[in-house]
């Protein structure tokens, strides 16, 4: 072997190592690589299916990433992503053509324990009215131990009566304060819902600006 070839050998070896390292680094940055290939395939298949079905696929991706970050077993992550896929599809079917954010929030309510039929009240809404706050409070109340039927009934009634975000938030603050002071969650909601002001149909809508 020529002397010049020997001299350049370490250089070439270094360059080869660098080239080999680039894809390795790229692989390390993809958190899905931490999953077993079969589990990864299942999750990616569900994400593609959600995208094709017009569902918010980012919710499934986020759920998988959360599981990976928490070092949850791969099979359990697949189960949870599959369940979320079902919830998103149910929410979309029940609510109709609403935004992806609303579908995700409704899926969270279903995940908390509400029944699909209880979402029906939110199918119709005024132009520009958002149900995100209502869904969020609803999921929280069920999580805090308010019976699902009572929470659904109260939130649906307020929504139909035209309650805005501030009313939902105010109700939640009052109920959670009562619960933290030891009151039964169901009783706390019943007490506070009676005190909650709602707009009457005549007074709906803000006064015209300008």
């Amino acid at each position: 072997m020529k002397r010049s070839s020997l001299r350049s050998l370490p250089l070439r070896a270094g360059a080869l190592l660098c080239l080999a390292a680039v894809p390795a680094v790229a692989q390390e940055t993809d958190p899905f690589n931490k999953l077993d290939p079969n589990n990864r395939f299942s999750i990616e298949l569900m994400i593609d299916s959600a995208r094709n079905a017009g569902l918010p696929s980012d919710a499934l991706r986020s759920l998988a990433l959360e599981g990976i970050a928490l070092k949850i077993d791969g099979k359990r992550i697949v189960d949870r992503v599959r369940r979320e896929f079902t919830l998103l599809r149910t929410a979309r079917t029940t609510l109709g053509p609403v935004s992806d954010e609303e579908v995700k929030a409704a899926a969270a309510v279903l995940n908390a324990g509400a029944k699909p039929a209880q979402l029906a009240a939110f199918k119709t809404r005024e132009q520009g009215r958002s149900d995100l706050q209502a869904f969020t409070i609803w999921a929280d109340l069920i999580t805090r131990g308010v019976p699902s039927e009572e929470a659904s009934s109260a939130i649906s009634k307020l929504w139909e009566d035209g309650a805005d975000d501030a009313i939902f938030y105010g109700l939640w603050k009052s109920v959670q304060t009562d619960i933290s002071q030891g009151l039964n969650p169901g009783a706390a909601l019943q007490n506070r819902i009676r005190e909650t002001p709602v707009r009457t149909p005549q007074s709906k809508g803000a006064p015209p600006e300008g």
């Binding site: 995940n111 908390a112 995100l132 999921a139 929280d140 975000d165 939640w172």
Partner: peptide, 17 residues
């Protein structure tokens, strides 16, 4: 507001308008 997420952990729910 909070809820139990799919992995049975409590998470906060932040509404961004």
């Amino acid at each position: 507001p909070t809820m139990h997420d799919s992995y049975d952990r409590d998470v906060g729910l932040l509404v961004v308008k």
